[in-house]
Write a protein that binds this DNA or RNA. Sequence first.
DNA 1: AACCATAGGGAAAATTTTTTCCCTGTTGGT
DNA 2: ACCAACAGGGAAAAAATTTTCCCTATGGTT
Lengths: 128, 128
Amino acid sequence: MYERKIPELLDCGLAVSVKVIGGKWKAWIIDCIRRGVRRPSAIHKEMHEVAPRIINMHLKELEEYGLIYKKIYAEIPARVEYCFTEVGISILPVVDILEKWGNENKEYIYRNKENYQADTCPFHRKTA
Amino acid sequence: MYERKIPELLDCGLAVSVKVIGGKWKAWIIDCIRRGVRRPSAIHKEMHEVAPRIINMHLKELEEYGLIYKKIYAEIPARVEYCFTEVGISILPVVDILEKWGNENKEYIYRNKENYQADTCPFHRKTA
DNA sequence: AACCATAGGGAAAATTTTTTCCCTGTTGGT
DNA sequence: ACCAACAGGGAAAAAATTTTCCCTATGGTT
């Protein structure tokens, strides 16, 4: 297990939320589960860009936080499903809002990033 | 300048939002500016846990995205203020919602994380 | 026997992000 | 002359995260 060397500042709500959703793929995983893609193997298939190992790690993290829990069916071959806890469900509207804002503004952001030249372009710089 | 080796997947809105707010300190910086702490030195003072260099880098990133812009006053000593663009303003309610969710659920998350023991604690594990 | 699928993790490498250290300037105060 | 505050960045180290590789097991299929 990896041990942090610098303690985290998780006193404020913003930091907690960012911690929970902010990983590289966690929001996507949450979205999978919401849409009913609950089994690890199914999530792996949908997120084929991402190594299974990582998805497992994120799932575990979300389980640690208590956003999802694991249903282990006594079947052969092993069958596992991840489902939302109540708190997990409560974050879904937040995810929706992030998704919405991102979709509404991504073109603007791309455009700005491409055109951006530090301190030279008067479009970005406003001198008073 | 650092160059990415793995291209980012920024097609979906969720990824874009997480990219924009998801840095270690960006949400805090946004919150500073919103509360009127607009000058770099003032932000540095408030966020004394964080190296000025990083704050500058995040400010630049937010400027690149077009969430904030730089007002440079023709004064001596140099005076700079960062202000929100329209799109910057539009993200504030999103930040609020993240802040709110985090505050409402942080104790729950702390508790779960502390009590969590993978696959041994029946509180977390539900076998069907 | 060799392979598939299921679920999962340890170790180490690679990548990305954050941090520290030290530098560029300007102007004003002591 | 020296130190303060202002705004800012290059280089490299450190830390954190992500990725790859390879392993554990079970049981079914070819």
